[in-house]
């Protein structure tokens, strides 16, 4: 694993974010640049103290997924299943059948890819109360390269009935997401990242499953983003607004079920919708938005994402640039559309 643990930062200009210091931590991660996996690991520990029903499973990656923190404090409620993701998902299903609230974690590609059919048959078809919280999604996994970079996981989970999919944008939102999914009865996929990300959500933000957060609605362009791309979207908005292009940003952290009320309201205002995600442009947020607006309120949609190719090794920052996932790429896309 070597290089994985030297934290690489994915950060936008400091100006936009309230504080970029990771120390000292506030308990809710507000205003802090942290990796969403770190917020997840810490939140699990907090919730574990209050809720005896929470149990955690991992597949030999508990140091990286941060479930190891829970394991240390609650060893009797932590199950390392070894390098067997399919078995881990099934075991989580069984635990849920005894009233436990299992969180099963590993890297996103192994969770959703290796164990896809177990998730479909055992978890979703039976509607089991299992939380699949996967880390190392997207290309910001970095140096490990394509084998470890899940750019298909949202697509894989979206097609399965009964699945709820949540992609938190920062540490503050992650904490709230984990709290919310504990109270929700049913299968959930939470998509978490390895790299440190800027804080984007405001202090009064309260996450609700299936509810998008509207930073603002623009009369020209609206950028619908999820995960780390919310930060890039906000940056792009600032650039575009200065140029006189009225731009809005929406954090669509729940990808399924999609917040169609908000989406419709946004579509009605938009001349262009740009979707932005650290995922393939096939099957993820861009697809979900396109499907909805084309059926309900046709408006031009441009998808920012990974263009049907595999990732590669590099630092997260370099990779975001290489794969066209920066604020500048969003701006360029809008310029191209304007130029038409």
């Amino acid at each position: 694993m070597g290089s994985r643990e030297q934290e690489s930062r994915v950060q936008s200009p400091e100006s936009r974010v309230k504080t970029q210091n990771s120390e000292p931590r506030t308990p809710d991660f507000f205003g802090q640049a942290v990796a969403t996996r770190d917020a997840y690991g810490a939140t699990l520990v907090e919730l574990g103290k209050k809720n005896e029903r929470i149990v955690v499973l991992d597949a030999d990656l508990s140091g990286s997924t941060k479930t190891g923190k829970f394991a240390k404090i609650f060893p009797e409620r932590f199950f390392n299943i070894g390098i067997s993701e399919q078995d881990m998902v099934g075991t989580a299903g069984g635990l849920s059948l005894t009233g436990k609230i299992p969180f099963a974690s590993t890297f996103a590609i192994f969770e959703t890819g290796r164990a896809w059919e177990q998730i479909r048959q055992t978890i979703c078809y039976s509607y089991l109360n299992v939380k699949l919280a996967a880390t190392h999604s997207g290309i910001t996994v970095g140096e490990d390269g394509a084998s470890h970079q899940a750019v298909e996981d949202i697509a894989l989970m979206r097609v399965v009935p009964n699945m709820t999919i949540i992609v938190p944008s920062d540490g503050f939102e992650t904490k709230q997401v984990i709290e919310a999914v504990v109270d929700y009865e049913g299968p959930v996929y939470v998509r978490l990242g390895r790299a440190k990300v800027p804080a984007v959500m405001p202090a009064d933000y309260r996450f609700r499953i299936g509810k998008a957060y509207v930073f603002n609605i623009g009369n020209d362009v609206n950028i619908i983003a999820a995960g780390i791309m919310v930060s890039a979207a906000l940056e792009a908005r600032d650039i575009l607004s200065k140029e006189g292009i009225d731009t809005g940003v929406i954090n669509m952290s729940t990808i399924k079920p999609l917040d169609t009320d908000t989406l419709l309201a946004v579509a009605e205002k938009s001349k262009l919708i740009v979707t932005a995600e650290e995922h393939s442009i096939i099957g993820g947020l861009g697809s979900a938005v396109s499907e909805f607006v084309s059926e309900n309120h046709p408006v031009h949609v441009k998808r920012i994402g990974i263009k049907d190719i595999f990732g590669c090794s590099g630092s997260p920052k370099e990779l975001l640039k290489l794969y066209g996932l920066t604020a500048e790429d969003i701006v360029k896309t809008v310029h191209e559309w304007k130029g038409k």
């Binding site: 149990v55 009797e76 409620r77 199950f79 399919q86 078995d87 881990m88 998902v89 099934g90 075991t91 989580a92 299903g93 069984g94 635990l95 849920s96 059948l97 005894t98 009233g99 436990k100 299992p102 059919e117 177990q118 479909r120 048959q121 055992t122 078809y125 039976s126 089991l128």
Partner: peptide, 25 residues
């Protein structure tokens, strides 16, 4: 019916999970 089955190979994992949960309780 405790859990939906039909795709072979998955039941024993579920049984393990139930056994772990019962033991915890």
């Amino acid at each position: 019916v405790e859990v939906s089955t039909g795709s072979l190979g998955q039941g024993l994992s579920v049984a393990n999970g139930i056994a772990l949960g019962l033991r915890l309780d």
